[in-house]
Amino acid sequence: MKLEHKATIAAPIGQVWAFLMDVPAVAKCAPGVESVEPLGDDKYRGTIKVSVGPIRLAFQGDVSIVERDEVAHTASMRADAADKRAGGAVKAVLTMSLSEVSTDPPVTELRMETDAQIMGRVGEFGQPIIRKKADQMVGEFGQNLSKAIAAGIAK
């Protein structure tokens, strides 16, 4: 399943990039993230809660930065997580790339391409709903990111 999102952030590209490299801060922008612990080597462990109506899933897993190109301003993160209770797993690669829209005022565009696979019993249940939910969540994540970066700058 492939998802694409864009967010526009009123901040210079360098600042946005710096923020993106702070994984715990970035992770907090994802809806439902409960905890993020660094494991070293650009690897982190965390929990994210997802609910669709009465269905409540808690995915636990690892996120790592698998690629980062400071010059091109692209980075990709990989997440592997599983929900033990219902028996489901998610494997996702999130590629983020920044481009400068303007320097005065500073505006940066963030593009996020997500390639995710939902597996196991959770995957048996309504892939279309999962896709919609994932789409919603990544969209919200993008919005939260812009807000968080804007807030950081305002400080």
Partner: peptide, 20 residues
């Protein structure tokens, strides 16, 4: 706790382990 009326949908979701 979860309410059950006719049970048709709830049974399926419980069978799949989505609601426990």
């Amino acid at each position: 706790a979860h309410l059950m009326a006719g049970g048709t949908s709830l049974m399926l979701m419980m069978e799949q382990g989505l609601i426990q």
